[in-house]
Amino acid sequence: MTSCHIAEEHIQKVAIFGGTHGNELTGVFLVKHWLENGAEIQRTGLEVKPFITNPRAVKKCTRYIDCDLNRIFDLENLGKKMSEDLPYEVRRAQEINHLFGPKDSEDSYDIIFDLHNTTSNMGCTLILEDSRNNFLIQMFHYIKTSLAPLPCYVYLIEHPSLKYATTRSIAKYPVGIEVGPQPQGVLRADILDQMRKMIKHALDFIHHFNEGKEFPPCAIEVYKIIEKVDYPRDENGEIAAIIHPNLQDQDWKPLHPGDPMFLTLDGKTIPLGGDCTVYPVFVNEAAYYEKKEAFAKTTKLTLNAKSIRCCLH
C-alpha cells in the first residue's frame, strides 16, 4: 500500500463567511444568496454554514464600524470581559468565536472560507496562513488546477512579526479568498463568478477527501510576504508620492531593483532599492491607505505537500 500522510479526520463542519468587511460585496451577495438557497454549497455528509460576519458594517456598506474585524481574533480580544464599552467588532468577534470556535479547541469548525474583495488587480487569490499544512496545500492545488487556465495565486502570510489574527483563524483550516479588482461597494459579475467557482472547487475537494480519495504528493507556487511598504510621506505625515503608473495593476509581476515604484507630484520617480527582485501584491489597495500600506513585497517559492487521505471509520 502506498505510504501517505493521513489527515486527522474527515471534514464535518464548514463555514463560509461574507461581510467580514461590509463594503466587499461579492461575499456579502453570495452568502445572502446561499442563506436563501444553499443547494449549490451542500455536499453529502458535510455541514456547510453561510454566515454574515459583520452585519452592521454590511448594512452601512462600510469596511467596519469601530475597528477591523479581520485583525482582532487574538486571545487578548477574544478574552476581554464582555461589555457595551467594547468596540462593536470586538464584541462581534467574541460572538463569532462562540459560534464557530472556540479558537484553538477541538470544537472549532474544521474549515472557514472568508470571502473578500480587493481594489487591487490580484485576480483569484487564496490566502494561506501555514506553509506546513498538507491538507490546505492539497486543497489549493486542486482549486488552482480546477480553475486553469484562469490564474489563481496563493498568498502566504506566515511571518515572524506580522500577526494578522484573522476572522477565519478560529477554524482548524483557515482559508482566505480574495478576488479583484473590484471597487468597494460595487458588485461585478465576473468577480462574483470567479469567487463562486473557487468555493465550488473547494467544496468538491472536501467531498472527494471525505469519500476516501487519496491525493498524491503535489507542489504549489506561493508568494510569501516579506514586508509592507508605506507611501513616501512629508514631515507632516502626508502622502508625498503615489503608486507609479508602471507599478499600478502589476500585482504578482516581478519588481526589480531600480524599477519605478512611486511618483511625486513634481514628476520624480522613486525606484525600488535593494538588490532583490520582489513580487508586489495589494498594490494601491483602497482599504490600506489608513493602514499606511502602499503594497506588500513578496518572494516566490514552492511548497510541497505529502499525499493525504481521509481516515475512514
Rank of each mutant, 00 (worst) to 15 (best):
E129R: 09
P174I: 07
I137N: 00
P260H: 05
V278I: 15
K163G: 11
A93Y: 08
Q250R: 11
S131T: 15
A240T: 13
G180H: 02
P257I: 05
E238D: 14
I199P: 02
E290F: 08
E211H: 07
D275N: 06
K49S: 14
P271R: 15
Y289A: 15
R63A: 10
F215C: 05
P245H: 05
I225M: 07
T298A: 15
K300L: 11
Y109L: 05
V281D: 00
V179T: 05
H10G: 14
M122K: 03
E285C: 11
T298H: 01
P257N: 03
E214I: 11
H201S: 06
I65W: 09
M195T: 13
C124F: 01
R132F: 06
D68N: 07
H244A: 13
V222G: 05
G274S: 09
V229K: 03
N121F: 04
T26L: 03
F209W: 15
I41P: 00
P87I: 07
V175A: 03
H159Y: 10
T269Y: 05
A165Y: 13
F205D: 00
T2D: 12
D107K: 09
F100L: 09
I65R: 05
K80H: 15
N54G: 05
K60I: 13
H256V: 12
V90H: 14
N134K: 05
E158T: 05
P245K: 04
V154R: 00
L69D: 08
K144T: 11
A305Q: 00
G27M: 01
K59P: 07
G176W: 10
R91S: 14
K103M: 15
E95T: 10
I127G: 04
I111G: 01
D234N: 14
E9M: 13
Y153K: 09
C4G: 09
S131A: 15
F282H: 15
G237L: 04
E95N: 12
K13T: 12
M82N: 14
I157G: 10
L35N: 08
H201A: 12
F205K: 01
E36S: 12
T125A: 09
L150M: 14
L301T: 11
A240P: 00
I206W: 00
L99M: 13
P55H: 15
E285V: 05
P232E: 03
L255D: 01
G258F: 06
P245Q: 05
F262D: 03
Q250D: 05
S120Y: 02
V154P: 03
E89A: 05
I41D: 01
V278L: 05
H159S: 12
T145D: 12
L156D: 04
L86C: 15
V28E: 04
D234Q: 08
V154I: 15
C67F: 11
G273I: 12
F295L: 06
N37G: 07
L78I: 08
I11P: 06
K253A: 13
E89T: 05
N97T: 13
R71F: 09
S120L: 01
F113W: 02
A189S: 11
A296T: 14
I177P: 02
E89I: 04
I111K: 00
I308L: 10
M261L: 13
Q184H: 14
D259I: 03
C311T: 08
C218Q: 04
V278Y: 12
C218I: 08
T118Y: 02
P217E: 13
I206S: 04
T118D: 03
I52Y: 04
V58G: 05
F215R: 00
I308W: 03
N210T: 06
P183T: 05
G258L: 07
E178W: 08
T53H: 05
G237D: 07
N23T: 05
S83T: 11
Q182N: 09
V222M: 02
E214D: 10
M122N: 08
P174T: 09
V186L: 15
K213Y: 08
I112Y: 02
D107Q: 06
G38H: 09
G123M: 04
Q42H: 11
R63Y: 10
C276Q: 14
H208S: 12
N134V: 07
G79E: 12
T119V: 10
E89Q: 05
G27P: 06
N97F: 08
T298C: 11
V14S: 03
E95V: 08
D249S: 05
Y231L: 06
K172L: 04
T277N: 06
K144G: 05
F113E: 01
I16H: 02
L265W: 09
S3E: 09
A39R: 10
F51V: 07
E9C: 07
K13V: 04
G180N: 03
R168K: 08
D204F: 00
E227N: 11
D104L: 15
L303R: 02
V222K: 01
P260R: 01
Q184A: 15
S120A: 12
L147Q: 03
F140I: 10
L128G: 02
K49H: 06
D193T: 06
C4H: 08
F205T: 00
F113H: 01
Q12Y: 08
L78Q: 13
H33P: 01
P160G: 09
C218H: 03
L301A: 05
F295H: 00
E95C: 07
K268G: 09
D249W: 01
P257G: 04
C67P: 06
T302M: 10
E36K: 11
N117E: 12
Q12P: 05
V154E: 01
T145F: 06
C276R: 12
T269P: 08
D85E: 11
L115F: 03
H21S: 11
K200R: 11
L150H: 12
G176K: 13
H207K: 15
S146T: 06
P260G: 09
I11W: 02
N77D: 14
C311G: 13
R309F: 05
D266H: 15
P50T: 11
G38S: 13
D190V: 12
D193M: 08
Y155I: 08
F205G: 00
P102D: 14
H201Y: 14
R196V: 01
G212W: 01
E106D: 15
T298L: 04
G45S: 12
H5I: 10
V179N: 04
N236M: 09
L128D: 01
F205Y: 05
V31L: 05
E106A: 15
D85R: 13
M82Q: 13
D74C: 07
T62F: 15
K32V: 04
M122Q: 03
E235Q: 06
C61M: 09
T299D: 13
K224R: 09
F262S: 01
A165V: 09
H207Y: 13
S307F: 05
L265G: 12
Q138H: 08
I191Y: 03
Q184M: 11
L46Y: 10
L265K: 09
Y142E: 00
E293I: 09
L187Q: 05
E9P: 15
K81L: 10
T302C: 06
N97Q: 07
K253V: 06
P174G: 15
D114P: 00
D104M: 11
E9L: 14
G180Q: 01
I239H: 04
L86G: 14
D230W: 06
I111H: 01
H21I: 06
P260L: 04
T166Q: 08
G19E: 01
A241P: 02
E221V: 03
D275H: 15
K306Y: 08
T166P: 11
A202I: 02
K292W: 07
V48N: 03
K81D: 14
P55M: 15
P149R: 03
H5K: 09
E238H: 12
N97K: 08
Q248C: 08
P50R: 02
C124Y: 03
F73K: 09
Q94M: 08
G212Q: 05
E285T: 09
S108I: 15
A15M: 00
F262L: 06
E95I: 12
V283F: 02
T264V: 03
P257V: 08
Y88G: 08
C311K: 06
H256N: 13
E221T: 07
N304V: 12
M122Y: 02
L272W: 08
V222P: 02
V58H: 06
F282L: 12
M139W: 00
T44G: 08
H33Q: 09
F140H: 04
L255P: 02
K197L: 15
Q182A: 11
W34L: 02
A39N: 12
K59H: 14
M195Q: 13
A171M: 03
P174V: 12
E293M: 13
T125I: 05
E84C: 11
I225H: 09
R56K: 14
Y164L: 10
T2P: 11
G237N: 13
G22N: 07
K32E: 08
D104W: 13
H5V: 13
C4E: 12
L265V: 10
A171Q: 02
L272D: 03
T62C: 13
W252Y: 07
P260N: 05
E158C: 04
E178F: 10
N304F: 10
H33R: 08
D68E: 12
A296G: 07
G79P: 12
A7N: 15
